[in-house]
Design a protein around this nucleic acid. Structure first.
Length: 421
DNA sequence: TCTGGGGTCCTAGGACCC
DNA sequence: TCTGGGGTCCTAGGACCC
């Protein structure tokens, strides 16, 4: 038998995490909101059933949703990250190799592991994760990642499967493809779907029937690989070790619109502090810094302005002070008065490992700076207090994001530990 | 009033070189 | 009217993902 890959993902992950600690909410529709309590990013099955769409701005549905007993939560990433780790650890204990693909899903190498029936093993994975974490997963099995994804879709779509579907069998596969819309395929997004629909390709079966010679020309290499994978030819290996990051973004929508440059400088400085901390955690230095900000692209009655500016640094750095300096330098070049800015952020790029640095013959301040940053990071991670830089200001209330429906940090803060009675 | 954040990969096009 | 061309490197922007 050829190799087999499973995609395991948690059903309604964020909403399920919230309900784990609120058994009183069983059966009630739950949504989880994006930062700033902006739009819906996760829904319980009840919320899906009553037609709440992914990504819809919460204010548009709030009244109706709450009237029928729906409940909303702000995103609680500390909780989700911790629950995610528990799921992944459980999974790791059951199989030889996994690729953690996102916070709530992982590709699993099944290979020669299981002499018996993979479907049966899938059910075993489900039962174990359910028992250890209280969360329910779906399992899709196929010869390639893209097919495992497709199988996982089927496991969700048809509850009668019991949440586990294996499409290594070609007959089974083609029956599924004949009734699955193309946009359910991993890698086919909105734009490509539109093009495919216009050409009369509605199902996955239609897509893989396109003559191979035409594919690259008409749809590009990305779709070419997608189709190969759908035909059972792997184009993407399991990524077992985490690849080094290529860029770090720190950005936010502001709690309130920013209209003056000082506030923007402070907000971007705060983002830069976080980005620099992430950079040091990766043990990297960067040689590229960008800042960006924009007004809301949605408000039709206001003029739009957004801009981005980047700087190349003379030598790689991970020093917060130096990076903050660039924020201050870049900002005036693209700042325009008279707009109400809704979002901003910073991007770091062009990384080199910290330990492979060319030493400067005449300058040994490097090691001192390094120690200073290390001490700051240590203090900030200790939970005892926070050391920051003056450039971000002292009052962040103006642009800080809103999280008015935040649940307690049940699993990551002693003070919030649930009490059993 | 109110519309996420953090990533990757690919491509087109400009700058520059010889 | 009247154009070099090929290669490389870099960046911006788009598409996609969760």
């Amino acid at each position: 038998m050829t190799t087999a890959i499973a995609l395991v993902d948690v059903n309604n992950f964020y909403a399920s995490c919230e309900r784990l600690f609120r058994p009183d909410l069983v059966g009630r529709p739950i949504v989880v909101l994006s930062n700033n309590d902006g739009c819906v990013v996760a829904r319980s099955s009840e919320a899906k059933k009553i037609g709440i769409k992914m990504g819809v701005p919460y204010f548009k549905i709030k009244r109706d949703f709450e009237r029928i007993g729906g409940i909303c939560f702000s995103s609680n990433y500390a909780l989700y990250a911790d629950m995610s780790q528990r799921v992944m650890t459980t999974l790791e204990s059951m199989v030889p190799a996994i690729e953690v693909y996102s916070i709530d899903e992982a590709f699993v190498e099944l290979g020669a592991l299981w002499a018996g029936d993979f479907v049966e093993f899938g059910h075993q994975i489900r039962a174990t994760i359910q028992q250890y974490t209280g969360l329910t997963v779906g399992v899709g099995i196929g010869p390639t990642k893209t097919l495992a994804k497709l199988a996982n879709y089927a496991a969700k779509k048809w509850p009668a499967t019991g949440g586990v579907v294996d499409i290594r069998d070609e007959g089974r596969r083609s029956r599924l493809m004949a009734i699955t819309p193309v946009d359910e395929v991993w890698g086919i997004g909105r734009a490509m779907n539109k093009q495919l629909q216009a050409e009369g390709l509605a199902t996955v079966a239609d897509l893989i029937a396109v003559p191979p010679k035409q594919i690259r020309l008409r749809y590009g290499v990305v779709v070419e690989r997608v189709i190969q994978e759908l035909r059972g030819i792997p184009c993407s290996e399991l990524q077992i070790s985490t690849p080094a990051k290529q860029q770090i973004v720190s950005s936010r929508s502001f709690g309130e619109r920013i209209t003056d440059q000082t506030a923007m400088r402070q907000a971007l400085s705060a983002f830069m502090e976080r980005a620099a901390e992430k950079l040091r955690k990766e043990q990297m230095r960067c040689q590229h810094v960008s800042i960006f900000f924009r007004t809301s692209p949605f408000s039709g009655n206001e003029p739009y302005y957004g801009n981005q500016l980047s700087a190349k640094l003379p030598r790689p750095t991970d020093d917060t002070r130096e990076l903050l300096h660039h924020v201050t330098n870049l900002l005036p070049h693209i700042w325009r008065d008279g707009f109400r800015y809704q979002k901003g952020g910073v991007i770091l790029g062009s990384f080199t490992p910290r330990d492979h640095q060319q030493a400067d013959l005449f300058d040994n301040s490097d090691s001192i700076d390094h120690r200073l940053m290390a001490v700051i990071d240590e203090i900030n991670h200790s939970g005892l207090g926070h050391v920051g830089f003056a450039s971000k200001g002292v009052d962040a209330s103006e642009w800080m994001m809103k999280r008015e429906h935040l649940s307690p940090s049940y699993t990551t803060s002693w003070a919030d530990l649930p009490v059993a009675r």
